[in-house]
Amino acid sequence: MDNVVQLSSATHAMRARDLLRKRGIRSEVRRVSGKKGRGVCSYSLKIYNRFDEAIEILRGNNIRIVGRDGAQ
């Protein structure tokens, strides 16, 4: 498990990172590698801790997650 979520744009990825940072969750914005086919030309967030909680925070703030690879 990579604990990575794929987001639709740089803006959304950076906003997601900042929202998580405010809750004490560390993450990093990366360009998506493309291994998931349609993942090319989007951005991902590598989440280093409290992954499931992070997902809930992003959903609660209307940040659309277009793909994920991590703990459930």
Binding site: S8, S9, H12, R38, V40, C41
Partner: peptide, 12 residues
Amino acid sequence: GSNSYDYNQPEI
């Protein structure tokens, strides 16, 4: 620079 596979303009 986003959703480039899609022929349509992004909604976001």
